[in-house]
Design a protein around this nucleic acid. Sequence first.
DNA 1: CGCTTATTTCGACATTTCTGGAATTACGGT
DNA 2: ACCGTAATTCCAGAAATGTCGAAATAAGCG
Lengths: 107, 107
Amino acid sequence: MDQVASCLAALGNVTRLRIYRILVRAGRPGLPVASVQSQLSIPASTLSHHLRKLLEVGLVTQEREGTRLICRADYARMQSTFALFLEECCADEQVAQSHSANDAPCC
Amino acid sequence: MDQVASCLAALGNVTRLRIYRILVRAGRPGLPVASVQSQLSIPASTLSHHLRKLLEVGLVTQEREGTRLICRADYARMQSTFALFLEECCADEQVAQSHSANDAPCC
DNA sequence: CGCTTATTTCGACATTTCTGGAATTACGGT
DNA sequence: ACCGTAATTCCAGAAATGTCGAAATAAGCG
């Protein structure tokens, strides 16, 4: 629960969401930090702070490749972050006797 | 983008995540505020603040039923919040010539 | 109307977050 | 060893967030 919340909090910032989106789109090969920066035009220190937060919660991994640092989205962590909602949907719902027009299934 | 970020930020707090989870599990019928409170044992004012934030971003709706206020998770908003990631996964990925053992598809 | 239950608003405080300039470390090439 | 590029850490200030008691508002009931 805490882990999910911290991941969501990490993504709940427009700048970090942009960063993460870029990495998600980049797929397995990932991207060097500088390449991410060039797509966002924000100061390097700001980017570094945000990347660190994404690293801390495990949504992103880094691997050094010579002078550059490759960032990749961790898809497993992404999956486990969102699974909570989709799996538990209406788990506690009481079955109603009569179904009205508004009773479309929620999931 | 901003909307998605604000929804994720709203869920990126353990207390609000618990509240939202309870409502997601409750399904279409929803739950009155007091019922949510009894499952969390937090002060009413604190709960009210968090509920307001969930309302503001559209993740939760409220409807008065006599003296009680029924809260429901908005499943459409939940869907649109998470869709971004699953849909855009590796959209920008370059197709590699050779596939190594680590090249499992990410989505 | 007055009472009770349900819920929100107000106010105030401590804590965390976001931002970015300046200095620092990391790495490879010459 | 020195230089240039890549990236992080340090620092500091402004702004937002989380918490909750006390007071206020809303709705039904006798």
